[in-house]
Amino acid sequence: MKTKKRWKKDDTELTLLALPSVVWFVLFLYLPMIGLLIAFKGYRVFAGHGFVYNLIHSDWVGLKNFEFLFKSNNITIFLRNTLGYNAIFIILGMVIPIAFAIMLSMLRNRFASKLYQTIMFFPHFLSWVVVAYFLFAFLSTEKGILNNIIAAFGGERVQWYSQAKYWPFILVFMQVWKTVGYSTVIYLASITAIDGSLYEAAVIDGATKWQQTKYITIPSLTSIAIIMFLLNVGRMFYSDFGLFYQLTQRIPGSLYNVASTLDTYVYAALQGNTPVGMTAAATFFQSVACAVTILIANGIVRKIDPESALI
């Protein structure tokens, strides 16, 4: 029953308006998708020719690049670290900010609450390069304040940057330090948007503050929590590169096992002379794995609660 309408002057104008962005999308997002073909090629650079020529004239090698990748010993370390840290970040990134947001919303003093938010949000605007300097000021073996304190109490100075056992905790702590304010503010915004009459009714029924939190606040946050969860799960195979690379001072050998992720591997490979095909295989795997994860997660959410699904 829908009649096909004619193309109007409006449509031409809107197309022109969209054109610059569309060109941008093609150049910076869609061409790389085609570039993923490198993962199936023995990509070679022919002197004097451009990228397209090289891509076409390189031999197809099927899944050889993937074979190499998954046979290398370290891939299990990269995968374990990438997925493991992300799992921890996702869980902590949900529990801690929700708890903080609820606590902030209960503070009696509005000004204090705003002040805490402002301060906690700030690290979001710092780069990992800067944060790495902060951390160095604490952890430097010779000069760092942590070792100074240890030494003042007569302890032995710790070589933080070469002791792998500390780093899972340091990395997790710093990740939380930098991101907790941002997520807290997002959840707090959702709490502020909850209909106040719900609480009034609960108070009249004699609900305690704890009961109000349990039966009103937390259920009201599920929708935004699910969206955040889906967005994060969709990046499960990616890691926050700067966190691992900068904080560890460029991943020294002694920290390789605890701080290497798929992204640090790819970055190192791009800077070194690993064949580009194998590195491309790693990123192809990342992209596909993430797309599949987010679609599955979204499918599950849709089954349980269609309203909260992202797609």
């Binding site: 061409l31 969709g234 791009l270 992209s287």
Partner: peptide, 15 residues
Amino acid sequence: PMIFNGGMVASYVVN
């Protein structure tokens, strides 16, 4: 692109 992207290597080669 929010679901699927070319990743670091392909972007690098294109850029």
